[in-house]
Amino acid sequence: MTPILDVRDLEKTFGSLVAARDINVSVPAHQTVGVIGANGAGKTTFINMITGHLRPTKGSIRFEGRDITGKPSREIVRLGISRSFQVAQIFPTLTVFENMCIAAAIARRKSGLLGNILTPVTSPAATSEAEAAIDLFQIARYRDVTANALPQGVRKLLDIGMAVAGSPRLLLLDEPTSGISIEEKFDLMNVVMSALKSRKITVLFVEHDMEIVAKFADRVLAFYDGTVIADGTAHETLDNPRVQELISGVRLKAASHA
């Protein structure tokens, strides 16, 4: 079967700075992949290249067999790859429902030059998807709250929910638990992961907390100095001596994974 994501010899340089190099990763559908590595190891650059925010200097990215290298973000999103952000990117002046509804409506708009104009934003398809996503991410009690008044955890859920409302098949989560207190992290990840599982979405998530990685990832990629230095099951990667040596914090937690 074709992998859902196939990355070959990916490289990104900014002048003389090498942000990513020799990245080769193939992800089969329905896998949950954790991405670890210190700050500046190239994780976000990797995500930014897949989602079209950065154009790779070299290499290719295939999604479901189709070459998407260097395509603009909006096209990649329409093909079925969504992302969430390290700092939640939501529309602060709109309510939770309106945020979701916009996301759902954009994904369900009519095609063609005038599709944006001919599709009402509150079409039944869009509103029912918005309600469904709100329920799925368990934020129904914030439904009519303006987004800039939301607590941090709900902002994160809304951000991911908006990505999911576009019905992607591959979702990239950039540090879904950053800015969340330790007590809340697991609850948040439980909500997110069971939501994604129920929608059968393949996930790549960047995470610094190794307990979370160990608990939720089927497979873990370790980034160091712009490239992947270990790729295997959570167990294999976290126990890898190079990973333990090069990525701080790994040593302590490697034994506790499930």
Partner: peptide
């Protein structure tokens, strides 16, 4: 007005 980047990442120009 709020957040152009998010709009692009919802798949619209």
């Amino acid at each position: 007005r709020d957040n152009e980047i998010r709009v692009e990442f919802l798949g619209i120009s």
